[in-house]
Design a protein around this nucleic acid. Sequence first.
DNA 1: CTAGAACTTAAAGCTGACTTTAAGTCAAGG
DNA 2: CCTTGACTTAAAGTCAGCTTTAAGTTCTAG
Lengths: 136, 136
Amino acid sequence: MKIGQLACRASLNASAIRYYEKRGLLAPPQRLGGQRRYPSDALDRVLLIRFATDMGFTHAEIKLFLSGLRDNTPVGPRWKKLAAHKLAEVERNIARSLKLKTLLQGLLRCRCASLKQCVCALGLSENLRSLALRAK
Amino acid sequence: MKIGQLACRASLNASAIRYYEKRGLLAPPQRLGGQRRYPSDALDRVLLIRFATDMGFTHAEIKLFLSGLRDNTPVGPRWKKLAAHKLAEVERNIARSLKLKTLLQGLLRCRCASLKQCVCALGLSENLRSLALRAK
DNA sequence: CTAGAACTTAAAGCTGACTTTAAGTCAAGG
DNA sequence: CCTTGACTTAAAGTCAGCTTTAAGTTCTAG
């Protein structure tokens, strides 16, 4: 499979695939006359990378996650640690988003005359410092 | 209040405050000898900007949200539309994160010999295309 | 009065995940 | 054989939300 075909099947640009390779997420494939030729299972790999990226993993994280995937290494404690760490992060993100959702719903329901009153009514102003979770 | 003091009270850098001003999020304050002097309610404004930023609003969105906050304009339909739009976005984000959470928990619980098996066991590989929500 | 802390500006730098550009090479159809 | 489209590279550009830098000005304490 040439890079264009792989890109097309994965619904992304060829440049993205070259970029994955440069970042070490995707093994450099065979070359024919200087051009990349991919085996068919490269599609799964690329889709997995795409999925993880969409899910908010950084490329550095994905690289860690994927190293060892190639030769059927058992799912070790190192890997589980990474997953647990990410899980905690995801849960924090969910908590934040739920809080924001409640807030937005409150703002949408309110009958205050002004945004400023809304903010007061919801106790936002007083708790601004504590609410600002300052991601990271 | 000088910019350093405001920055300190809001727990951010003076440069961030100047940046907010340049982006039009924060009204340019009075000047004494060329230096900015803020009224005390500027702190609330800055904290609100910080909070919204933390909550994942872009500066463009915050600018839209905050325009009209100054002179007690009623919470109009335009504003509500923005909030509703953001609410939908937040809900999509929550749905994504919950899906990812389930997935990570599955991976953490599994006893597969390899990550590849895990991915298969969870039906990830087959559904990779549909799962990849491609944010936006 | 003077040292030095805090302020001023514009412009460049940072991170992440790519895309775009420029300039060139390869491959397949007519 | 020749065109045209797909490929190659390195390097620069993009977006957001700042931070850092450089060079200069102003305020304040001693």
